[in-house]
Amino acid sequence: MRIWSTIGLLAAGTFVLKAAGPVLLGGRRLPPLLDRLVAILPASLLAALVLVQTVGSDRRVVLDARLAGLAVAALCLWRRQGFLVVVVAAMAATAAARALS
């Protein structure tokens, strides 16, 4: 039920954001302050998601094999690898770190 509620609410909210321009507002622009916020916001949220998913475990901060995966992902991105390579390499590094520890 949690999952279907999330899908329903997120779909409705996302559609409002998607349709506001084409259906309601025509060719107007966002006010400069909001435009700037919209440009910066993803960096903060994505960085938070990276960290929470790497060291978060319910309400605890846990340092484990996921860190090895993140390090390898960063290396792959620095070497300009594609999305799937980054994800698979991170999984492999985490799996290896777990098998060795």
Binding site: L51, G69, A73, F83, V86, A93
Partner: peptide, 9 residues
């Protein structure tokens, strides 16, 4: 580890 890697990408 796939979640954090995907968000990092």
């Amino acid at each position: 580890a796939a979640f954090p890697a995907a968000f990092l990408a």
